[in-house]
Design a protein around this nucleic acid. Structure first.
Lengths: 348, 348
DNA sequence: TTGTACGCGTTATCAA
DNA sequence: TTGATAACGCGTACAA
């Protein structure tokens, strides 16, 4: 009758209370000893630590979070997981988080605004200490971000950032990127440099166009509007845009092309091939973002390497220092990029 | 004096208590109304739901978890994140979890046993409802898994599975895979078929080797131990292992190679090239896993397509049905694979 | 139909 | 140095 009286509640887990009982001390002493508080006798501390190991006691994070109002957990929201960029960013985030003792709750918005909203709200309920977000493409309503910040949950946006709402943004310097890659072409004697530009309503598109123009100006090359064609971010757009350029009278054709990103460059390369022109002899081309395929295409693509891991690492570190009050929210952090010179620009 | 008496505790979050106070009901009524319990007047329910939306009340998952002993969260431990396979698996997991109302805590073991162990123990403390694990390569000690299961946390292993401890395993049928791809070569007349094998302490390595031998046996081809060289799972190992094969006297050299996975095959292809041999004319080669690059290398690689998304989806669904008591732990689930024939095997 | 008391496992606070 | 008590925010069990 008396036996097994607590078989219902004890789910196998050892609690501080139980351990304390075994040791003949109070739960508080256990807590203090294990959390390295000063006010506990060394001898007692050792006994507690020993017993904790022996009985496999680990503080329950859920209960701990409830009192401390802190979960040591970061919510990460990404628009896609499959391709190489975000996984690598996540690896950077994970490493930085792990080093600082934080864990990650990963949510995937699948480029869907509602799913992103849903994720943010659940992450709030799960009391994450901070949010790391790369927005879905369709996002128009910024209020969920503001709401999270109002609740005291700092947000750091990475890659697909939302500026102007007081959250920290971590991304590459689009303008500088594009300026560098353009100047690389200038430096190797190209004169008629075209740009396949991104959509002008996306910050990336605008920034890169600006960088392209800046590079021209700095090198006293006249800007020729007919050499800038919107291609969007995809391969098909790159193809179409390049065809437009190739329809120009031979003398006005570009001798080099700066594509807004690698997929667009791939499309353009195809168009160039289809016109029986050679890369880089007839037309040189460079991209941006270092798609996995860049190295593998028939004429390996010179591009700007996006330091995905670094972006993740930087964003996580920034967020954690804000969570811990060492930094304030609302910074703009630019991550350095690197030029990967391959064959497509004719400089090798 | 009386004013602002609770400015310290109210962290901005609305609690059930506060909402109840506003409505002039008890917290219980709020809870009942929002959780769809029957014993609450329809009118009251509507008032509560309305107010909840108005004041932005969402139940605190942490507090909820503490009482319910359930977090609706799954812990996912993967050995690496960067390459295409695991991200795609994770996407499958995420979709299945999202559909069932579960969230994901992602941990990355970086192929390190201690880090994996650490992850598992923290995930236990965070009270995940179940674990989805793909083991690190170095793992020797299975006790952490047993401990988790003893605590009532079901484990489903995927891809890199641990059999024989009563946990469900989801993977492709390595033996069958490798047998199929080997027989594909046999069927096209290759006689001296080598195998770049995985580490023998990993189930994948063992299973695939077994499949390779089975295919030989079934086709009355003599097994030649010198044609099996350990390459590990990476490109560099594939290169080194292939070099060993190429050092064999010309007459003993293989005319075809079955690599344990695609990266290993890529390394081997490089070694073959460096020896000025042609693929597939001089040596045919096949891989397994369908790395993104397989299609893009100079001689597109014939390989077994790993249904990464499906593996993730299946594993998550299996785990969730075990968490919810609809299935028992300890099943062995094999996911169907598909042969992708390209040029490297000379069969096109 | 609704409310009260209590427990989940931890830590802060204050008393001893 | 240590312990008792309350609180974190919710849900279960029972009482009203």
């Amino acid at each position: 009758m008396a036996a097994g009286k607590d078989h219902k509640k004890s789910s196998g887990r050892v609690t501080a209370e139980k351990l304390a009982h075994i040791l003949g001390v109070s739960a508080m002493t256990v807590s203090r000893a294990l959390n390295g508080r000063p006010n506990v006798e060394e001898k007692t501390r050792r006994r507690v630590i020993e017993a904790a190991r022996k009985y496999g006691y680990t503080p329950d994070h859920i209960a701990r979070s409830l009192t401390l109002r802190r979960t040591e957990t970061i919510g990460v929201v990404v628009p896609e997981i499959s391709h190489s960029f975000f996984p690598e960013v996540i690896r950077g985030i994970e490493d930085a988080a792990y080093a600082a003792g934080y864990h990650l709750i990963l949510a995937h918005s699948a480029e869907d605004e509602n799913r992103e909203l849903d994720a943010i709200s659940t992450l709030e309920s799960k009391r994450v200490d901070g949010l790391l977000i790369s927005t879905a493409q369709t996002v128009t309503d910024k209020s969920p971000y503001l709401e999270a910040m109002r609740l005291g949950i700092p947000i750091v946006f990475f890659d697909r950032v939302v500026e102007g709402i007081g959250a920290t943004c971590v991304s590459i310097d689009d303008e500088d990127c594009c300026a560098r890659v353009t100047e690389h072409l200038v430096g190797h004697g190209y004169k008629a440099i075209a740009h396949l530009s991104g959509p002008s309503n996306v910050s990336i598109g605008r920034g890169r166009l600006k960088g392209y123009r800046k590079a021209l100006t700095r090198n006293n090359i006249k800007y020729r509007p007919e050499l800038v064609v919107q291609s969007g971010f995809h391969e098909s757009g790159g193809y179409t845009a390049m065809e437009k350029l190739l329809e120009l009278p031979a003398r006005q054709r570009p001798d080099a092309v700066v594509a807004v990103n690698d997929p667009s460059a791939f499309g353009a390369m195809k168009a160039i091939q289809d016109h029986r022109l050679r890369i880089p002899q007839d037309i040189a081309i460079v991209g941006m973002s270092d798609d996995v395929r860049a190295e593998l295409v028939f004429s390996p693509l010179t591009t700007i390497r996006q330091p995905a891991y670094k972006i993740g690492e930087t964003a996580a570190a920034a967020l954690i220092s804000e969570i811990e009050g060492r930094e304030k929210n609302g910074r703009k952090i630019l991550v350095e990029t690197e030029l990967a010179v391959r064959k497509s620009c004719g400089c090798l």
